[in-house]
């Protein structure tokens, strides 16, 4: 199969259509601002596009690097964009999730889906791969929800993000430092762009760590900015 061929995970294409229809239905009474619509749309495109395109072909048939790119897109970036795209009324209708449960659940999902046996099994059959991706998307939504719902104060959000950043970084580092392929599946796939299985894995780790560093530092920066604003406002009210 050519690397430019499309491979589909139909479930996620259908789920994206259902989510878009649900958003339109809710938006009839609660009109979202254009930027919210754009964020929600980009979130859906990232999920549907990453799992239904040549990316999927390369991820499943050739390179771990591209599979980890998919995972980063659907687990870290797309869920955040989807949640940011919801209006306050839409968010209010969602259940409350406590940070103390969301963080361990996200970490378990992150490491669990990348465990050697599970990962190899998921790649050898198509439906377990759907399960892997569904877990990552749900875990991403669960992780970002306590932050986007606004229930965490800036100090709590900083502690939450800091713990998540440190807690999740070991997986990327393991990929970077491992000299042997962790997943036997990719030892036997045809190579692409001259990347050996070990180098493919190292680059995947770099991609994962780089992406998480960027996303988490931006989020931490946002909450530091909010903390400073709060202190500024508190100082101004004390003076007046």
């Amino acid at each position: 199969m050519s690397v430019t061929s499309f491979t589909f995970e139909w479930f996620f294409l259908g789920a994206a259509v259902v989510a878009a229809a649900g958003y339109v239905w809710f938006a009839r009474n609660d009109r979202p601002e254009p930027w919210r619509i754009a964020l929600f749309a980009v979130g859906l495109i990232l999920i549907a596009g990453a799992l239904n395109s040549p990316l999927e072909t390369i991820a499943v048939k050739r390179l771990l690097l591209i599979h980890l790119l998919q995972n980063a897109l659907i687990a870290d970036i797309a869920p955040l964009l989807l949640l940011l795209g919801l209006t306050p009324t839409m968010r209010a209708s969602l259940p409350r999730v406590r940070a103390r449960y969301a963080l361990p659940a996200w970490l378990i999902a992150w490491y669990g889906t990348h465990a050697t046996n599970f990962y190899d099994w998921a790649l050898r059959d198509s439906w377990p791969l759907n399960i892997e991706h569904a877990i990552l998307i749900c875990a991403g939504l669960l992780f970002w929800w306590p932050l986007v719902s606004g229930r965490l104060s800036p100090p709590a959000a900083l502690a939450y993000l800091g713990a998540a950043f440190v807690g999740s970084s070991f997986l990327g580092l393991a990929f970077i430092f491992s000299t042997r392929p962790i997943y036997s599946y990719y030892e036997h796939t045809p190579r692409l762009w001259g990347l050996s299985p070990a180098r493919d894995q190292n680059l995947g780790g770099i991609l994962m760590n780089g992406e998480q560093t960027l996303v988490f530092l931006l989020a931490i920066g946002f909450y530091v900015w909010r903390l400073l604003n709060e202190e500024h406002a508190a100082g101004a009210s004390t003076q007046s």
Binding site: P155, L158, L217, I220, G221, V224, L227, L228, E230, E231
Partner: peptide
């Protein structure tokens, strides 16, 4: 303030 110091720590990190 805590915010100023956390901001400096975040910038250093």
């Amino acid at each position: 303030t805590v915010g100023q110091r956390v901001a400096l720590a975040a910038a250093m990190f």
